[in-house]
Design a binder for these strands. Structure first.
Lengths: 202, 202, 202, 202
DNA sequence: AATGAATGAGTGTTCATTCAT
DNA sequence: TATGAATGAACACTCATTCAT
């Protein structure tokens, strides 16, 4: 006496989404080896066995999670930004404001960033995937930086190094958001200073 | 006839030191729950049982490790620096150069920093100790920052926030040192830019 | 769909009972430190892990076992007997016959008695609980003995000492039952002789 | 520069004796699997390694201990007693007094008895040796009992069963001596009552 | 001969995964 | 489909035995 097959499929998809969403936060807070399936299932509010109806293993769940994190419209947005007919300085300003706002409002965003970092700690096997993803983000950021260097608004130095520096700081504050109860977040000004030559005109 | 008691004591102390030193690196690279006692013992080059002659449990070993990390002359050095009759700018310059050099040369330093960060990930119970340690480091850094703000060489804003920002970036590059095979390190200039108002005079 | 919750609870309770029952015999035969969890689980016919779903640790299992042993209707039965309007001699006779029959038929009874004794060997920490339990048994036995001394059918001497003597012999034959393959059990007459003055009237 | 070889040998023998003596008590109180070599060595007051200069293994030490317990002049004494031209009643009286006095004064005797019993609990493999030993003791006791039955002073029944009963009670009070802090010991009268028909002549 | 630090096989306990319901 | 009880491989820890001194 099945419900309409489509509806059924729909429900499955919803549960799967819920698991991914909740697991992301849980893994982010506890790390891979620090996460027990029993605790995780309990946190999500489902039975342990149910997890295995949706994912082959703990490893598999983490892998998919990680893929979801990196499969994003973020790259597109950044690409679009980099192509806009604006000064590098204002692009950097816009980017910084957007990113800090997301960090502030969206815990899932922080979790996503944290997971990416965690891979460095625990699961170096995924590092290559991570790198692939980052490289796109870095690529477009580096483009903006190079534009800024031509416009003399951005400091000298390897554009990739600077892009990495910039995003590393973003990662850092994602961690802080997730793990520190009371922290003072940096402002867009602080974040921009990593790249911008000076602020004396302000 | 027994071994000479003094020599015996000496050997014990040496072994203990060796364990702490090696375990620090291993824990830093693998995290607490990612570290198996058998692997760790193997890495150090001793039997599993030997570990338990020196430390009551895995937990206990980690705890002591963590205490060692935070019991340091570093605080003193920073305090001394903060009291020197120098401009804030040159203090910051000196500090930045010293720290980056240490990061480059001393893997143990990177490990130490990483462990402190790891506690945030896995073992929030130690967070308070960590905070205590950091707060002293932060305090003296904040003093230098305030001096710089009076001298108009350092950007405006909460001195604690800025100190936190500065050291967070240092932590970040410790992580990179330990986990990333190929990374471009930042320069002292990059690090200083976090605090300094502008560099147009350079 | 979940199993019906009531049935679930029921199963849990049954398994728990089974573990307690089987473990009692196994511990009785092998002692606490002589019992390996793997062997015990195998003997019961469950997985090692299953034991830990029902009991926190080996220690905990033993403690509960011990509590079960001492939580008994036996005390009540003895109390009732002591209050009946009968001669001490016939009370002692009745008690002796009952006890010897139980020893003969019920291996669990022997195991129970043995565990109590074992505590003396290995786990003196529980001795006080044990003593509490025994003291009630002893108390009512002593009452019967005192009645017998007034009736001149029971030998002189401290009633507690005699009660202890009587039950000690019972314990002894419980041990024999459990550990000796071929042994000649004593008769009720033999057991009674510990207390009764003479049998010349028989 | 050795001491005279004989003296050397002598010292070895003394140490060996000391180990056997102390180990007997320790094993008796803690059981075989309940005894750790480290604890035992500490109790004796020697290094762990030293034990292995005198005994091949823990097992070996226990085995020798057990042999020492059973290799005794006790059998001879009992044999002599059984052959004396005395009434069975007075033989039983003499035996009972001697045994109870030994129990009272000599902790080692209690330990010896306890070890024998322990074998039943933990190390059934030695049971046969134990039985051999006991059988001699039992044999001579049974002879006395049979004499008593002819003389009408001892109760009817299998003489071996009665001998076993008698010695079991002795064992019991050895256990009590070793493990119970405060206990009331039985008198020779109590012990004799196990065998003797009546005491109305007293 | 004596020691106690070192070892690793063995034991207690946990946890990812399976499976009966 | 959903559950959680059951499992055993894997892990933390212990302890009889060895060995350098």
């Amino acid at each position: 006496m099945p419900k309409s097959p489509e509806r059924c499929q729909e429900i499955r998809e919803e549960t799967r989404k819920k698991i991914l969403r909740d697991a992301m936060l849980y893994f982010a807070k506890n790390g891979f080896s620090g996460t027990k399936i029993s605790d995780l299932a309990n946190y999500i509010g489902i039975g342990q066995g149910t997890l295995y109806l949706y994912f082959k293993s703990k490893e598999d769940l983490f892998r998919e999670l990680f893929a979801v994190c990196n499969n994003d419209r973020e790259i597109k947005e950044l690409k679009t930004l980099s192509l806009l007919p604006l000064s590098a300085k204002s692009k950097i300003h816009r980017l910084s404001k957007t990113v800090l706002k997301k960090l502030e409002k969206d815990e899932a965003y922080a979790a996503k960033v944290t997971l990416t970092t965690q891979v460095l700690f625990e699961k170096n096997d995924y590092a290559s995937e991570s790198t692939t993803y980052q490289s796109e983000i870095y690529l477009y950021t580096a483009k903006i930086i190079e534009q800024g260097q031509r416009e003399k608004s951005v400091v000298d130095g390897s554009s990739m190094k600077l892009a990495d520096f910039y995003w590393s700081v973003v990662y850092l504050y994602a961690l802080k958001k997730l793990f520190t109860t009371k922290y003072e977040t940096i402002t867009a000004d602080d974040l921009e200073r990593i790249l911008l030559k000076d602020e004396h005109k302000k």
